[in-house]
Amino acid sequence: MRLHTLHLQAFGPFAGTHTIDFDTLSADGLFLLHGDTGAGKSTVFAAICYALYGKPPGDRDLLLRSHHAPES
């Protein structure tokens, strides 16, 4: 199985709608996900787990809905 695209909306620190195109990132082989502390790297992995399995990874009590997103 290979992940091609991930769409995030109001997830973790990402208040808006964001798309990650893994095909573009991996066009040259491996890629590195890096950034400052709090940038959302772990949230991307949590979103992948949530998309695949319906729950965040491990026993961590994660707030999935972004507190930056407007109330719906």
Rank of each mutant, 00 (worst) to 15 (best):
residue 59 D to T: 14
residue 36 D to Q: 07
residue 46 A to F: 11
residue 55 K to I: 08
residue 69 A to S: 12
residue 58 G to A: 08
residue 54 G to M: 13
residue 26 S to N: 14
residue 41 K to Y: 02
residue 24 T to E: 10
residue 49 C to R: 08
residue 41 K to H: 04
residue 45 F to A: 15
residue 1 M to T: 04
residue 14 F to N: 02
residue 18 H to D: 05
residue 24 T to M: 08
residue 26 S to R: 15
residue 63 L to W: 15
residue 4 H to C: 01
residue 63 L to I: 15
residue 53 Y to P: 10
residue 27 A to K: 06
residue 29 G to S: 09
residue 53 Y to I: 10
residue 16 G to E: 00
residue 7 H to N: 08
residue 27 A to R: 09
residue 32 L to A: 13
residue 9 Q to G: 08
residue 3 L to D: 02
residue 59 D to R: 14
residue 71 E to Q: 14
residue 35 G to E: 08
residue 23 D to G: 03
residue 69 A to R: 09
residue 63 L to A: 15
residue 19 T to I: 00
residue 59 D to E: 13
residue 8 L to K: 01
residue 8 L to S: 00
residue 59 D to Q: 13
residue 37 T to V: 05
residue 49 C to N: 10
residue 72 S to N: 12
residue 6 L to A: 00
residue 4 H to W: 03
residue 63 L to F: 15
residue 53 Y to T: 12
residue 39 A to K: 06
residue 37 T to E: 07
residue 25 L to P: 04
residue 13 P to G: 02
residue 49 C to T: 07
residue 72 S to Q: 14
residue 41 K to S: 03
residue 72 S to H: 15
residue 11 F to L: 00
residue 67 H to Y: 06
residue 66 S to F: 06
residue 51 A to T: 15
residue 6 L to Q: 02
residue 5 T to H: 04
residue 41 K to D: 04
residue 27 A to F: 07
residue 60 R to A: 15
residue 13 P to N: 02
residue 32 L to M: 11
residue 28 D to A: 10
residue 22 F to T: 05
residue 19 T to S: 02
residue 44 V to W: 09
residue 70 P to D: 11
residue 30 L to S: 11
residue 22 F to H: 04
residue 21 D to G: 02
residue 22 F to A: 01
residue 29 G to N: 07
residue 27 A to Q: 06
residue 61 D to M: 06
residue 26 S to P: 14
residue 25 L to V: 04
residue 28 D to M: 09
residue 33 L to D: 14
residue 40 G to Y: 05
residue 19 T to A: 01
residue 1 M to S: 05
residue 61 D to W: 06
